[in-house]
Simulated scan of single mutants.
Amino acid sequence: MFKYLMDNRGGSYLLAISLLFFSTFFVSYFVFCYESQIKVYNSLEFANVRATINLLEEIGSK
């Protein structure tokens, strides 16, 4: 196995596998960060909408 990795084709295979691993890791990291950010924006939007509804109900009851 070691001799296969040391020749030209084996090194290319090892490089391709490691590149695939690292690129998959970084893409998944950025996707998870993006999803987390979208969840925060959605929760802030919901809180602002709820506050606006409460304010309008308070104004309407006066």
Rank of each mutant, 00 (worst) to 15 (best):
D7K: 07
N8E: 09
N8M: 03
R9Q: 11
R9G: 04
G10D: 10
G11A: 02
G11R: 05
G11F: 10
G11E: 00
G11M: 04
S12T: 03
S12F: 04
Y13C: 06
Y13P: 00
Y13I: 08
L14E: 10
L14M: 14
L14N: 04
L14I: 15
L15A: 02
A16L: 08
A16P: 02
S18L: 06
L19C: 05
L19R: 08
L19K: 06
L19W: 05
L19T: 07
L20Y: 07
L20R: 07
F21L: 14
F22L: 13
F22C: 01
S23C: 10
S23Y: 03
S23H: 04
T24C: 13
T24R: 03
F25G: 11
F25A: 15
F25I: 14
F25Q: 08
F25L: 15
F26Y: 06
F26S: 03
V27L: 14
V27D: 05
V27M: 14
S28L: 12
S28W: 04
S28Q: 12
Y29S: 02
F30P: 00
F30L: 07
V31G: 00
V31P: 00
V31N: 00
V31C: 01
F32R: 07
F32H: 04
C33I: 03
C33D: 02
Y34C: 01
Y34M: 01
E35V: 01
E35L: 06
E35N: 11
S36K: 11
Q37S: 01
I38G: 00
I38E: 09
I38W: 01
K39L: 08
K39G: 05
K39A: 15
K39S: 10
K39I: 10
V40A: 04
V40L: 10
Y41N: 00
Y41R: 01
N42K: 11
S43R: 12
S43A: 12
L44F: 03
L44D: 05
L44C: 00
L44E: 09
L44W: 02
E45D: 10
E45F: 06
F46V: 09
F46L: 12
A47F: 08
N48E: 15
N48G: 11
N48H: 09
N48C: 07
V49K: 11
V49N: 09
V49T: 14
V49M: 09
V49H: 08
R50A: 14
R50L: 08
A51D: 15
T52L: 05
I53T: 12
I53A: 13
N54G: 07
N54H: 12
N54E: 15
N54F: 14
N54I: 07
N54C: 04
L55E: 12
L55M: 08
L55Y: 14
L56T: 12
E57F: 15
I59W: 01
G60W: 11
G60R: 15
S61N: 15
S61I: 15
S61F: 03
K62P: 01
K62C: 04
